[in-house]
Nucleic acid binder design. Structure first.
Length: 421
RNA sequence: GGAGAGGUGGCCGAGUUGGUCGAAGGCAGCCGCCUGCUAAGCGGUUGUGGGGGUAACACCUCACCCAGGGUUCGAAUCCCUGCCUCUCCGCCA
């Protein structure tokens, strides 16, 4: 969320920045509400001041055994008036707050302007897609032949968009988790294994609520939310905290299952493992000082790329244009892996700098050495990587004519075999 | 699930016949002094957020003693609800 004061004082900056996102904003109601709010706030505070002073007076008078009835009556009136004002204030704040919660983040100046995903810009490519001397299969065909992913049983047990991983398929899933966590922790990321069910405050802190509830699974009694990404519990680790400057930057990596309703994706990627209600992911999360966050975004993206390089999977990096970026992000790189079965690049990681947008919602601050006051940290995160999609990429890129799949060099020690057959 | 205890500042911990409490005291931190060094000692100082104010400080003011309501002229202190922690019993991986 943006800061109310910032919005009040930077109307034009905000308007033009959001226009680049294709987001027209009408601030007139907000501004007049803010005007009312500040006026009433002042009145309320002045009355409280009066009440504090006089109440103390009443105490003194009573201790002297004298009568203070007229003052008491007067203060009763003052208190009633304070209550009235506060009720109005609460109503106003509810409106302004929900208005602020629904404004997306301001894009960084380096983000290309554009209306949708067709205007994203490719930044670099790594690796050369392999030449096949046969027609490469889709991963679901490969998996069916090898009997390592069972979509029918997944549907029977749970429903559409669920799968059962079997034998070497399950092992590959586990191998990837371990491989990624080992690689990430070797670079200084601290391993975290957080709760998978979280409360409403955490979902609001990272921006999933109130705007995107339709994509979340929720338990009813008691109420919890199933995390759509480890970003939620891991970023919320430091919610409502004031960090010391020397603690920054903080690097976390976490494996978790992720749960998404995919409500807006009917008919998309219905076959295969690309879009599931439940999937595994290893996440990278950073908390940094504002002046370092863009440098840290580059490093974080590189760390995610390194996983693909070590697995020998060709990919490209694109920077999302203003119109395609997520709600909370100021700048996002997507990493897309080459899938021979689909003859195209598919998203496997999304690395974002949220600047202070999440930190303000989640109230994550830090204190500079020798300076008074606090500042919001910058938060970043990226997949490192989505396990299911990595598994898909391995099956498709390492498939052989006879239907078997070669295990990438880096995974052999985790798999125990050289070929999945 | 049942019974009980409790949630106060960076930490520990007073305060529960409502008023002089943003909150004693201790520890830790910071700044001085003192001191061969260190330790000890002495003095001072140290929360967050909002509003106003300033060139910037200063300063003024409001709120915050888990959260949200309530009673009252006035609440850390009384009442209600929720959340969390601890102990005992039961159950369970």
């Amino acid at each position: 969320m943006l800061d109310a004061r910032f919005v009040r004082e930077n109307i034009d900056v905000l308007k033009s920045a959001l226009k680049k996102r294709g987001y027209e904003i009408d601030l007139s109601e907000f501004l007049s509400l803010e005007e009312d709010r500040l006026r009433l706030l002042k009145e309320s505070e002045e009355l409280r001041n009066k009440r504090n002073v006089v109440s103390e007076e009443i105490g003194k008078i009573k201790r002297q055994g004298q009568n203070a009835n007229s003052l008491v009556t007067e203060m009763k009136g003052v208190s009633d008036r304070i209550k009235e004002i506060d009720e109005i204030l609460r109503a106003i704040e509810e409106k302004t707050n929900s208005f602020l919660l629904n404004i997306p983040n301001i894009p960084h100046e380096s983000v290309p302007a554009g209306k949708d995903e067709t205007e994203n810009v490719e930044v670099r490519r790594w690796g050369v897609p392999r030449e096949f001397d046969f027609e490469p299969l889709n991963h679901w065909d490969i998996a069916e032949t090898l009997d390592i992913i069972d979509f029918e049983r997944g549907a029977k047990i749970a429903g559409a968009r669920f799968a059962v991983m079997k034998g070497p398929g399950a092992r590959l899933e586990r191998a990837l988790m371990n491989f990624m966590l080992d690689l990430n922790t070797s670079k200084g990321y601290k391993e975290i294994f957080p709760p998978i069910l979280v409360n409403r405050g955490s979902m609001t802190g990272t921006g999933q609520l109130p705007k995107f509830s339709e994509d979340l699974f929720r338990t009813v009694d008691p109420e919890f939310y199933l995390i759509p990404t480890a970003e939620v519990p891991v970023t919320n680790i430091h919610r409502d905290e004031i960090l010391r400057e020397e603690q920054l930057p903080i690097y976390y990596t976490a494996y978790t299952p992720c749960f998404r309703r995919e409500a807006g994706a009917y008919g998309k990627d219905t076959r295969g493992l690309i879009r599931q209600h439940q999937f595994n992911k290893v996440e990278l999360v950073k908390f940094t000082k504002p002046e370092n966050s863009y440098e840290e975004l580059e490093k974080l993206t590189n760390d995610a790329e390194d996983i693909l390089q070590k697995l020998g999977l060709p990919y490209r990096v694109i920077v999302l244009c203003t119109g395609d970026m997520g709600f909370s992000s100021a700048k996002t790189y997507d990493i897309e892996v080459w899938l021979p079965g689909q003859q195209r690049y598919r998203e496997i990681s999304s690395c974002s700098n949220f600047e202070d947008f999440q930190a303000r919602r989640a109230n994550i601050r830090f204190k500079r050495e020798g300076k008074k006051g606090t500042e919001f940290v910058h938060t970043l995160n990226g997949s490192g990587l989505a396990i299911g999609r990595t598994l898909v990429a391995i099956l498709e890129n390492y498939q052989q004519k006879d239907g078997t799949v070669i295990v990438p060099e880096a995974l052999k020690q985790y798999m125990g075999v050289e070929v999945i057959r």
